[in-house]
Design a protein around this nucleic acid. Sequence first.
RNA 1: GUGGAUGUAGCUCAGUUGGUUAGAGUAUCUGGUUGUGGCCCAGAAGGUCAUGGGUUCAAAUCCCAUCAUCCACCCCA
Length: 423
Amino acid sequence: MIKAIKGTKDIYYPEIEKWQFLEEIVIDVFSNFNYNEIRTPIFEETALFARGIGESTDIVGKEMYTFTDRSGNSVTLKPEGTASVVRALLEHSLQKAKPLNKFFYISPMFRQERPQAGRLRQFHQFGGEALGSNNPYLDAEMILIPYIVMQMLGLSDFKVKINSLGVPESREKYKTVLREYLSDKVKDLSEESRRRYETNILRIFDSKAENDILIMNEAPKILDYLSNEDIDHFEEVRNILDDAHIDYEIDEKLVRGLDYYTNTTFEIVSGSVGAQSALCGGGRYNLLARELGGVDIPAVGFAAGIERILLACKNEGLLEFDPYPLPLFIVLLDKSYDRIAYNLSLYFRGKGVETELDYLGRSVKAQMREANKNNAQFVLFVGGEEINESKVTLKNMADGEEAKYSFDSLEEIVNKIYSSDEE
RNA sequence: GUGGAUGUAGCUCAGUUGGUUAGAGUAUCUGGUUGUGGCCCAGAAGGUCAUGGGUUCAAAUCCCAUCAUCCACCCCA
């Protein structure tokens, strides 16, 4: 039997309801902040990600789904959303149409990693990008928006971590200092961290080895090497968050894995989802547009993992919905009236009443059981003696009360169903 | 890519030191009871015991290989 590819999942009942619930909240919150949805293609020219995310990153180096199409072009399934949004902005010169563009997306992403709790090969993110301004209010907004989404979901076991990486010049200066600090301690680091000492020294801060953590706790801090301008920007972001009553902690060890980040970086981590605890991450990327199109467009954004957020909801006992009530179920008492029953269903559906009926030719008893499983509020019986008087019987499933209606007073049934819904 | 764990009914799981026809709960279907439904009762259907090989009189059970899934490393959302 053909099965879904490793690290991919089919999403259907009952989980799909949670996805729809979450997506509705996401759209509401973004709309509330006046962000516009953008849908970019699911694959792009490989060079976009290689240049945008950075050749040396793990994502580009070993995780991308890259293949050659039939025309011989190298294309890649998108591993993240930001590069595509920036590409679209530049391609359509949207920075000229509007000085500030605020976009959001909800989209699948693809990375060929070993699957694990909270880590899939096709996973889904919602994210926001604000392009065209260096204003620290937008940095704060990128934290505020996912924070509000998580609050609306009812999550409580999470915290916000922020840091600033400054501009590349100060980061390079800091790396040099860090390299000096570690020069005589390299031998005590874990094997993994010794490798990073050569390749990407900042990532040693991510190490989970106990001894590495001890050594890095004593290391010089990046915030001491930022320019005055960057420090002011970071302080302003923090003040805005304080005034918005967002709890956060400064984590000077928070260095993110994508090359394009400058200044503010942040993460929202959950305490209830296992090893892959980052629910959301993002930061400012003032240099990415120049890298991709030669234009300076200061920008900031974030992305949040939908599977991880839903996992956190599950572990915190949230989103346990009761089955949706079904307003109307039509029960066929006599099979010869099936066309009448179906036409009635079309009438009620046309009136906006969600309606179901039996498609399997089952007994009245089985139909009633089915109505019950669907949590039907009303059942409409078609057939029996009353059909000879052109009437149908409506039963209220809550109290068992029944009433007959003639075919020319179906409107009354609709009203009855709607009025009971309001109670 | 590295390590560990696990694969038995649609789902969640039992299955003794190897021993007849592999079980339960739940879901599904049919019927009884009920004012035509919920609760209850009865019955039915549902399995290549992941796959392949080996040991044995005998394998779901022991051994080997393969595959898959899960968890952790790594990486990140």
